[in-house]
Design a protein around this nucleic acid. Structure first.
Length: 564
RNA sequence: AGCCCGGUGGUGUAACGGUAGCACAACGGAUUUUGAUUCCGUCAGUUUGGGUUCAAAUCCCGGCCGGGCUACCA
């Protein structure tokens, strides 16, 4: 079943500061008008919505300016990286709607990087340091005090070369030596205090297996990888800003293609954590179902939740790109989904918390098929029929025996409309011993079939319903924010971000009642359950027992009014 | 603390020396067979103090506030 229509739109907007730079470079003829970007994830976790921002930026720029964008895995640390992550990253990028021009791995450049390292040694710009981790750390100084030179800093080119080659050959254990760039131990920028280029790591790599036992550090690998791929605009997040002088130092002293680095503010969302480390922690502690738990900000989670790629791209477009490290309200994200799904999702009826209504003047054993439109604003979605009979379910919260003034749903003596069906009037309420309503007895007006009264009388409310006889029993999962405070990272002394986890972030409804057509829903199908929200068919769903995730609620001014 | 970066309504952004605009949120109203959608309206902002200028959100200097940096992670 096709539950959606494509409504991707890219409205024009003023250029952000990075696109402005690209436009200027293009205008000035830099790089012969070539634009080359790259998205460089480390395969040590799943991509999250912050990465989506970067993906939209990098791939978006390439697309808009007639350039190219590579996917490059920054896989220089074999202790953390796995093929599982490589696969998920590729899947997520594609799902978001982008295709890379070339696929690369920093590990493909290990040999070139090694040669360049020897070249730097030859120039006297790199040396092997045989100090311990602690010694090197101590020598680095602090932000206030300059560092002190390592006793190994003045080794001869020959000795450095010999040691470095033996490092590669595997003659030394982990930590015995490192290769360092010889820059400036007194630099105000700590990154320039003889940064480490290589460490010894006797760990097999997910791609190069046991070919290497020395691995390059990020700074030594990233800029050169950019340069090798002739990246014109190397876009990264703000925390790398302070690395830029080093990025440029390596490129300058190697005299290779001058890629330029530009930094933007990473995405922060209210009620969410975005660090890979913290997300990994949630997964490993089993505080969520996994990387694709629909409450997670991972692309896999967001996808399972029911977000569309279009809504995510629209969101990234909406939030813009700046250097101001602000926090975006989660409602902006939710709104971009509502906006998209409102136009694309077919409407269905589903009762989440059912209570039975018996229509006492409807003939016993009778039933009929009623026609319903699939989208109230778009006829092209067509219509469907829903069986109607003497017994139907309505939402428990749509009935109140003793309602307040502003409540205009069903209550004793009141008449409301059953959507696409009839006006019904509440005549009696049946309760059990605990005083819970078990049945509501109503009468219907046969003249109001389809939902309009020939005499022109009006009702204040229209309720959704599902026929008891044909209802499909289903599991429905309602999600709320994973954290109960706006900024879960803000924890008191000795506290932990996990202390802010929302205990009610998942509510499982075991026996929701769906209209019959919904039994044929496939994984990923999205619908609006009228008056309840947007729902997406989960991957655990079966024809016998459908499972739906609530992607986002509808805007609900009544719920808001109730609170006051 | 030192260095680097940043600061425009509640939030995210635009204005590139010349009318502070947009979106989300909030609030009010109209329409409505979803208390949805749609439409209309309201509230609300240049961190602060100096300087340059006919004119400053924009340029300069100082303060204040926020973020980043002190990994053999990326």
């Amino acid at each position: 079943m096709s539950a959606e229509k494509n409504t991707d739109d890219a409205s024009a907007k003023p250029l952000d500061f990075i696109r402005e730079i690209v436009a200027q470079d293009l205008k000035s003829g830099k790089h012969d008008g070539r634009v080359q970007t790259r998205f460089p994830p480390e395969p040590n976790g799943y991509l999250h919505i912050g990465h989506a921002k970067s993906i939209c930026l990098n791939f978006g720029i390439a697309k808009e300016f007639g350039g190219r964008c590579n996917l490059r895995f920054d896989d220089t640390n074999p202790t953390k990286e796995e093929t599982e992550y490589v696969d998920s990253i590729k899947e997520d990028v594609r799902w978001l709607g982008f295709e890379w021009d070339e696929e690369h791995y920093a590990s493909d450049y290990f040999e070139q990087l090694y040669e360049w390292a020897e070249a730097l040694i030859q120039k006297g710009l790199a040396y092997v340091d045989s100090g311990s981790l602690d010694e090197i750390r101590a020598q680095r100084g602090t932000v206030n005090e300059p560092g002190t030179p390592s006793p190994y800093r003045e080794r001869s080119v020959e000795e450095n070369l010999d040691l470095f080659r033996r490092m590669r050959a595997g003659e030394f254990p982990n930590g015995a030596h490192v290769l360092r760039a010889k820059i400036d131990m007194a630099a105000g920028n700590m990154n320039l205090r003889d940064p480490i280029m290589y460490r010894i790591l006797h760990t097999p790599h997910h791609r190069t297996a046991d070919k290497w036992c020395i691995y390059p550090i990020y700074d030594w690998a990233h800029g050169q990888s950019d340069s090798i791929e002739k990246i014109t605009h190397s876009i990264c997040t703000l925390e790398f800003e302070i690395h830029r002088p080093l990025y440029e130092w390596y490129i300058e002293h190697l005299d290779i293609f001058p890629s330029k680095q530009y930094e933007f503010a990473r995405l922060n969302l209210t009620y969410m954590v975005m660090s890979k480390r913290k997300l990994l922690e949630l997964v490993q502690a089993k505080l969520v179902e996994g990387w694709d738990d629909p409450r997670m900000p991972t692309i896999a989670g967001i996808r399972r939740r029911g977000y569309t790629p279009e809504s995510l791209r629209k969101f990234c477009h909406t939030i813009g790109v700046t250097k101001y490290p602000g926090t975006t309200d989660i409602s902006v994200l939710e709104n971009s989904l509502r906006d998209d799904l409102n136009r694309r999702a077919e409407r269905r009826m589903a009762v989440l918390d059912p209570v039975k209504v018996v229509i006492t003047n409807y003939p016993e054993g009778a039933s009929e098929e009623l026609e319903a439109v699939n989208h109230p604003q778009d006829e092209s979605f067509g219509t469907r029929t829903i069986p109607f009979g003497r017994e139907i379910y309505i939402e428990r919260e749509d009935f109140m025996e003793d309602p307040p003034k502003k409540f205009f749903r069903l209550s004793p003596g009141k008449e409301v409309r059953m959507r696409y069906a009839y006006f019904i009037k509440c005549e009696d309420v049946i309760k059990n011993e605990q005083g819970e309503v078990t049945e509501i007895h109503c009468t219907y007006d046969p003249e109001t079939k389809g939902g309009n009264a020939p005499d022109g009388r009006k009702v204040k409310a229209t309720l959704h319903w599902v026929p008891v006889a044909e209802a499909v029993d289903a599991e429905v999962r309602l999600y709320d924010h994973l954290f109960e405070v706006e900024n879960p990272n803000d924890v008191p002394e000795g506290g932990d971000f996990k202390d802010h986890l929302n205990p009610n972030s998942l509510q499982v409804i075991k026996h929701a009642k769906l209209e019959p057509l919904l039994s044929s829903a496939q994984e990923g199908d999205r619908f609006q359950f009228e008056r309840m929200g947007y729902f997406c068919c989960d991957r655990t769903s079966t024809a016998e027992r459908p499972v739906f995730n609530r992607a986002v609620t509808l805007r609900d001014t009544w719920a808001k009014a109730k609170k006051q």
